[in-house]
């Protein structure tokens, strides 16, 4: 039985992952923005077999609240075996370019809040010398594309941060897993047309569970994105800048 903290628990990917852990009879602590949705999810996870589920409402951009919230979660669970960070937003690129405040908000939600939260999570895990931190970033962070580079830059910031953190926590036996999903059919992307590359949140959840179990460094989800991103990153910039991607 594991103790698991899920941040951004109402996201489709986090939800699917939490369900898996609930069916393994684990104990969960959920943080997310909408308390009504959290209550619904709590009941769901309990029926699925979770040993216990507690939750609290949280606002990713209210940085001062992060410390007390994580402390409360730690007190409830006792310790963290797994911390999954999955909150995020998909900002409108054109709007980000015309209004810096929108871009700033996107960075706050997708990047800075993650770094702030991790600050509080790391210490107890270091002290215990065990556990796994999994953060959902995106393949969009692997290379900047003109259609989506604010979101991409924010995710890239987190990925780079996680690379460094992985090394820092290695001696303390704490694993850091960077989850990079491709296109996922979730409410965040409900307005986009779907093609063959799109995956369901359950598929991503399976990759997360496996990645955490194996303490992998970077997990592309589904796995074929590793190949796609290898190709995308191999295109010389001279050509890439001319592509309307």
């Amino acid at each position: 039985m594991k103790n698991i903290l899920v941040i951004g628990a109402n996201s489709a990917i986090a939800k699917a992952t939490a369900r898996h852990y609930a069916e393994q009879k684990d104990s969960l602590y959920l943080l997310a923005r909408d308390p009504e949705q959290l209550a619904v999810q709590k009941d769901d996870l309990m029926v699925r077999g979770a040993t216990s589920v507690e939750c609290a409402a949280f606002d990713a951009t209210d940085f001062t609240s992060h410390g007390p919230l994580i402390a409360q979660a730690l007190e409830t669970l006792g310790h963290f075996d797994i911390v999954l960070i999955a909150h995020g937003s998909l900002p409108d690129q054109a709007l980000c370019e015309s209004d810096f405040n929108v871009a700033l908000e996107a960075f706050n939600v997708n990047a800075l809040s993650v770094i702030s939260l991790l600050n509080y999570v790391i210490k107890p895990m270091q002290t215990r010398r065990d556990g796994c931190i999994a953060v959902v970033t995106s393949v969009a962070g692997d290379r900047g594309r003109q259609s989506n580079f604010i979101y991409g830059a924010a995710k890239a910031m987190v990925s780079t941060y996680l690379q460094g953190l992985r090394g820092r926590l290695f001696p303390d036996n704490v694993a850091v897993v960077d989850i990079k999903p491709g296109f996922v059919d979730t409410p965040m992307t409900a307005h986009l047309p779907k093609g063959a590359l799109w995956a369901q949140p359950e598929q991503i959840a399976q990759r997360i569970v496996k990645g955490v179990e194996k303490r992998s460094s970077t997990v592309y989800a589904p796995g074929f994105w590793r190949l796609i991103m290898f190709v995308v990153c191999s295109v010389p910039e001279v050509i890439f800048k001319r592509l309307k991607l």
């Binding site: 619904v40 999810q41 009941d43 769901d44 029926v47 699925r48």
Partner: peptide, 14 residues
């Protein structure tokens, strides 16, 4: 989502 399950009656609300 599941809502409630009663082991005694086998009634599942979802």
């Amino acid at each position: 989502n599941f809502i409630d399950f009663d082991e005694d009656s086998g009634l599942l609300r979802c």
